[in-house]
Design a protein around this nucleic acid. Sequence first.
DNA 1: TTAATGTAAACTGTTAACATTTCAGAATAT
DNA 2: ATATTCTGAAATGTTAACAGTTTACATTAA
Lengths: 226, 226
Amino acid sequence: MRITKKNIFNQVLEYLRKEIILGNYLKGEYLVEVNLAKELNVSRGPVREAIAKLEAENLVEKHSNGRTVVKGFDVKDIQDLYDSRILLENHALTQISSDELKENENLLFLYIDQMKEAHEKGKRDIEIDLAFHGLLVKMTKNNTLTQLWLSLRELFRTLIDITSEVTVSNQKEIIAQHVRIVDSLSDGEVKEAQHLLKAHLEEACKYCCEGIMINKRGEKHVTGKN
Amino acid sequence: MRITKKNIFNQVLEYLRKEIILGNYLKGEYLVEVNLAKELNVSRGPVREAIAKLEAENLVEKHSNGRTVVKGFDVKDIQDLYDSRILLENHALTQISSDELKENENLLFLYIDQMKEAHEKGKRDIEIDLAFHGLLVKMTKNNTLTQLWLSLRELFRTLIDITSEVTVSNQKEIIAQHVRIVDSLSDGEVKEAQHLLKAHLEEACKYCCEGIMINKRGEKHVTGKN
DNA sequence: TTAATGTAAACTGTTAACATTTCAGAATAT
DNA sequence: ATATTCTGAAATGTTAACAGTTTACATTAA
């Protein structure tokens, strides 16, 4: 990996997150700060910070003796992630006040327009997609709910990033689904919006699993030796 | 605060978490690594780590310039926390297989017995209480759901710890509610279990809000000056 | 007076070194 | 042979110093 001088911690984090998801670090493998620091030509500080974040993302586990072991990542984990995201976002839909919706409707449609724009250029704009879904949660005004959603955000960003070659094709349908969700919400049809959102995310999950399978390195359980 | 030689990072974290919740650091106030390090007689490393965790707990916010500002904590935040916990745990109840339940029923009742034991000694065992609720979530086998719940755990531990003088009185009722929840689950009455769990946590929330109000320092909005 | 510019202090990001704990294997005793 | 104790290596926890950026404020120009 090429590490530039600034924001070292973030670069290390993104590198490790991607490698674990892709299976280049295997379940049971130890992450040793000194070794990683040497490999990546950085000091232990940023590596330590990155590992702490990976722990919060459930990709590694810190033992009581301080050592860090990779938890691995497979299709089941993707499904768990999407299941939980469906739970959070569908709950969010029930908690949005009509005032709050009115205030943010324009922004929701702006995001939709920006996705259309990107799609016309043959691109997929992950950030805007996540901003759209994030706004649905933010509109609840529930700080904890928002925080929980945000704690999954980077993981989804990486997942979508890795699998974008699979998902870029059905961008048009994704955008249409976003429109339908907002329309249902505006009409006060919360149940309908929930149904649409669930289907939307389940489809995304399906494509994501496919995309990961394609890119993932072959599984092989490693018994924990450094 | 007295800082002992080992596990400095954790001590700093718990100190800061408690202080922010109690309102001894106010909304808008800056957390400066160098100052905190001097105040607590430790180096910046552990302080940095602690601040990163506080950020994940939504108690502070890191600006793009790197500076850390306290987000504050009030009754609304407690309600958000409990609302989200109800969401996670009630969803968990729907996802527990009967096999999984059979396997863990004994452990659930063990926790209940341990709470009874503590109660007979006039104590309240926070850890066991949290272990009980945590097991409900773990039984879903959904890694993400479990992780989300765990990310709230320390915050709840601190909250319950601060407010334990209020909640220790109704320990007996809390234990009885735990029993009823497990019984409903065992009978396959998931809806009933959800209803009981929701009421259980809403009551806990109420007592927690009371307890915090008693212990909290008077609010005063500080405009962000170091 | 207001805006622009320069500068020292304050603060974070990063690195490197020191301290302590944990681990693995050799040496010893039973 | 098996168990136990010792010892050095390896890894984490912590500290301290360095580098770069941002902030705050004084100075200058319009």
